[in-house]
Design a protein around this nucleic acid. Structure first.
Length: 589
DNA sequence: TTGACCATGATAATTTCG
DNA sequence: CGAAATTATCATGGTCAA
């Protein structure tokens, strides 16, 4: 509370306090960090290829990201500048087409479209790198047809795939096979398979076609077509396969684990990153997110394996997945264990053992009253239709039995406990009950996140510098703290003032030794700011963020617009900032 | 193929609070 | 009386088992 708490937060960044001197010192001494593509960022002087767009915001935005002015203008002219996500995709595609030669495997072009990038991106050709027929032709009869076929569609050679299957056995998973082939390829000298450019383009946005194959096949998208445009066509997306049970690479309470996975070269840290969002996003959203986040495969985990409430979320991160450990003690994982007092009143016909996802709104008092009246009319168990009504409502609103015939929504502090926060984490500081529910409903489940982040503990015994975007009530910070990972410098970006206050007051109550800086808007966090901060701290070790889910979540009847939605599109700022950090970190090394 | 179940935020109207 | 809190109402796209 040393004078600089919440008051400063209404404006941009809290530089004008104790750390100013520190910054100045660093700035004069080290300047190895520059904004990637620095030329493009500042050098906008050259004549634009299209005068019409000279002052387009989108144009500047993308030029700032390192695309050529010419390319951006062209794409904007074609697609308009409203849909930035679309534009970015087009730019990536265009860049990939431009800079990577045809992949090794021959593309079978649809004769009806001479489909080249320039004029007719809209021409779809219905072909594959291997056409289906070709694959069929090439595959000799064997029990491994399916796996082999899949691997070939991913762009691997038949012989490589066969060797891998032979070596690892027929029951090996696709991932293991891909892993094996990948290792074999490297051992064999990369040139054999990868176009030379690909190896050089680590910090580029461009993704090679081959990489996209991994993306599409492993992530469950439909097979890509000969023309890249097809890939982007949204009608063409297939549901990402969510794991069942939803345990990601493993959870402490289940025995099945994956300890190895292939992380694409571009994604390898440091900096480590950890991105979160709702698992049940509209089709194609996770494919897009994954594609931006360096093609890392999402890890879908339901927090019901960590606590008594479900919370199905997807996480994309580049953390190791070996030797994870959970926070102790393990939280109770059934309703009765979590809320022993409810057992007494719990009717036998309510068979729930877990709560559903904790949401941003709660059931009304009126509703609980209606339920009480519906149930108390009957001596014993109510008839089926009443049971069904009551159970439906209980499931919908996560009601628990707190008295004879009496249900109630969870109290905010109970939600805090379920989510792994300290009790009263969100209490006080002028926050209303409604807002507490809202903040909690949008938060991480701490035990789940901590389990994933636990691998950082032995890597950073002296603590980490954390960049936390969309911090909310500080789920990541709390998780790291509970893991015993010291927080050296934390830059926390969060729009809501009450949330910032919550994190700030938690920070002070837990006697943190490091520094907490907060910002209001991720969009203000540009290359200069980052450079300034990274010069100060010596870079970030971890970039965490769960971008807004409101345009993705099923309950949103009004604006479930997908990743392009007003708030959810801030994901692209997560990507932008992460990419800046990655570039700066790699330059400094 | 069908139906049960699940997940889930925005908004306007209404009530309560200060 | 205005602000804040509460409440009712709104839909869709997905999985899964029958």
């Amino acid at each position: 509370m040393g004078g600089d708490d919440s008051g400063v937060e209404s404006d941009n960044f809290d530089w004008n306090t104790e750390d100013e001197l520190e910054i100045e010192n660093y700035q004069s001494s080290s300047s190895c960090l520059t904004v990637p593509n620095g030329d493009a960022v500042t050098g906008s002087g050259e004549a634009s290829s299209s005068a019409v767009l000279a002052n387009s915001k989108a144009l500047d935005h993308f030029v700032g990201m390192g695309f050529s002015r010419e390319m951006v203008s062209k794409v904007i002219q074609e697609y308009g500048e409203e849909n930035e996500a679309k534009l970015l995709e087009e730019l990536l595609t265009y860049k990939a087409l431009e800079s990577s030669p045809q992949p090794q495997q021959q593309i079978v072009t649809d004769p009806s479209s001479s489909g080249n990038a320039g004029s007719s991106w809209d021409d779809f050709s219905d072909t594959d790198i291997f056409s289906d027929e070709e694959i069929e032709k090439n595959i000799s009869d064997s029990e491994n047809d399916d796996t082999l076929r899949t691997l070939m569609k991913m762009g691997y050679k038949q012989e490589e795939a066969l060797i891998a299957i032979e070596r690892l056995g027929q029951n090996s998973s696709l991932d293991e096979l891909v892993d094996f082939i990948g290792v074999a390829q490297i051992a064999k000298a990369e040139d054999a398979l990868l176009p030379p450019e690909e190896k050089l383009r680590y910090n580029d946005y461009a993704k090679s076609k081959k990489r996209r194959f991994y993306d599409y096949e492993v992530l469950g998208r439909k097979k890509p077509r000969g023309c890249e445009k097809k890939i982007i066509n949204e009608d063409d997306e297939e549901a990402l396969h969510l794991p069942n049970p939803m345990i990601g690479f493993g959870v402490p309470t289940e025995s099945s684990f994956r300890t190895h996975r292939r992380i694409p070269e571009d994604a390898i840290g440091p900096p480590y990153f950890y991105y979160e969002n709702v698992a049940l996003a509209p089709k194609g959203v996770w494919q897009t997110i994954s594609r931006f986040l360096y093609d890392v495969e999402p890890e879908f985990v339901d927090s019901k394996f960590f606590c008594a409430a479900a919370r199905k979320r997807g996480y994309i991160h580049n953390l190791p997945i070996q030797n994870r450990f959970p926070l102790l003690p393990l939280p109770p994982r059934t309703i009765h264990e979590a809320f022993p007092l409810t057992r007494k009143w719990w009717p036998s016909w309510d068979t729930r053992t877990k709560l559903n996802c904790l949401q941003t709104c709660i059931g009304s008092a009126k509703l609980t009253e209606r339920i009480r009246k519906a149930v108390e009319n009957y001596e014993g168990d109510p008839p089926d239709h009443v049971q069904k009504y009551v159970l439906d409502q209980c499931r919908k609103w996560n009601l628990v039995w707190v008295g004879r015939n009496k249900v109630a929504p969870l109290e905010p502090d109970e939600v805090e406990t379920l989510l792994g926060f300290p009790r009263n984490h969100t209490r006080g500081g002028g926050i209303s009950r409604t807002d507490r529910y809202k903040s909690l409903g949008n938060s991480f489940q701490v035990d789940t996140v901590a389990y994933h982040l636990s691998v950082l503990k032995e890597m950073y015994p002296n603590g980490i510098n954390l960049l936390s975007l969309f911090s909310g009530i500080g789920g990541a910070e709390v998780a790291l703290h509970r893991l015993g990972i010291p927080l050296k410098n934390v830059v926390s970006v969060e729009k809501s003032e009450v949330n910032r206050n919550i994190v700030r007051s938690w920070w002070e109550q837990t006697n943190q030794k490091g520094h907490l800086y907060d910002m209001e808007d991720v969009r203000e966090l540009d290359g200069d700011r980052l450079e300034q901060m990274m010069n100060t701290f010596g870079g970030f070790d971890l970039v965490v963020g769960g971008s807004p889910c409101n345009n993705l979540a099923g309950s949103n009847r009004v604006s479930r617009d997908g990743l392009e939605g007003k708030e959810s599109s801030l994901f692209f700022d997560y990507f932008r900032i992460l990419d800046l950090v990655k570039n700066m970190m790699s330059k400094c090394r």
